Amino acid sequence: MTYCVGMRLDAGLVFLSDSRTNAGVDQVSTARKLNVFELPGDRMMVLMTAGNLSISQSVRQLLSEHVGASGYSIWNAPNMHEAARLVGEVVRLVHERDAKALAEFGIDFNVSLIFGGQIKGERCRLFQVYSAGNFIESHNENTYFQIGEAKYGKPIIDRVVTPETALDEAAKCALISMDSTLRSNVSVGLPLDLLVYENNALAVTRFVTIDERNEYFQMIRSTWGQQLKTIFEGIAAPVWDSSPQARVSKPVRVPLPESLASGTQPPAAPQSFAQQFDNKQQ
Results as ranks from 00 to 15, higher is better:
106 G>T: 02
130 Y>K: 02
96 E>Y: 01
72 Y>E: 10
142 N>Q: 05
44 M>E: 15
144 Y>F: 15
172 K>A: 10
110 N>R: 12
124 C>H: 09
167 L>M: 05
119 I>W: 02
92 R>D: 09
114 I>A: 01
148 G>Y: 08
130 Y>R: 06
84 A>W: 02
47 L>H: 00
147 I>A: 09
161 V>Y: 02
115 F>R: 00
101 A>W: 00
123 R>F: 08
135 F>Y: 15
77 A>G: 10
126 L>N: 11
158 D>A: 04
171 A>Y: 08
89 E>H: 07
165 T>Y: 09
173 C>H: 07
90 V>A: 07
172 K>I: 05
51 G>C: 09
74 I>M: 13
110 N>I: 02
119 I>N: 01
132 A>N: 14
164 E>H: 08
92 R>E: 09
170 A>T: 01
53 L>W: 00
118 Q>S: 10
88 G>M: 08
156 I>T: 13
147 I>Y: 04
157 I>Y: 01
108 D>L: 13
79 N>C: 14
156 I>R: 07
144 Y>L: 15
69 A>Y: 11
63 L>W: 07
145 F>W: 13
164 E>S: 13
104 E>H: 07
163 P>A: 13
139 H>D: 15
59 V>K: 02
152 Y>S: 12
88 G>S: 06
135 F>P: 05
180 S>E: 14
145 F>P: 06
81 H>W: 04
126 L>C: 12
83 A>N: 12
129 V>M: 06
177 S>H: 08
156 I>Y: 12
98 D>P: 00
101 A>M: 11
97 R>F: 07
97 R>H: 10
108 D>P: 06
168 D>C: 03
120 K>S: 15
64 S>G: 15
137 E>L: 00
146 Q>D: 15
124 C>D: 14
157 I>C: 07
107 I>E: 10
154 K>Q: 15
107 I>W: 03
103 A>L: 12
46 V>W: 05
68 G>T: 09
58 S>A: 15
106 G>P: 00
91 V>F: 01
93 L>Q: 14
101 A>N: 12
173 C>Y: 04
141 E>C: 07
164 E>Q: 14
56 S>W: 03
88 G>T: 08
122 E>C: 13
68 G>C: 06
117 G>L: 06
152 Y>R: 04
80 M>A: 12
170 A>E: 00
51 G>L: 07
159 R>T: 08
137 E>Q: 11
57 Q>V: 03
180 S>M: 12
76 N>G: 02
178 M>W: 13
107 I>T: 14
61 Q>W: 01
113 L>A: 00
166 A>H: 11
94 V>F: 02
74 I>G: 02
72 Y>I: 05
137 E>K: 09
159 R>M: 11
119 I>K: 01
90 V>Q: 04
112 S>Q: 14
167 L>T: 05
59 V>H: 01
135 F>I: 04
148 G>K: 02
68 G>P: 07
156 I>C: 14
62 L>I: 09
146 Q>H: 15
53 L>R: 06
131 S>M: 14
67 V>N: 09
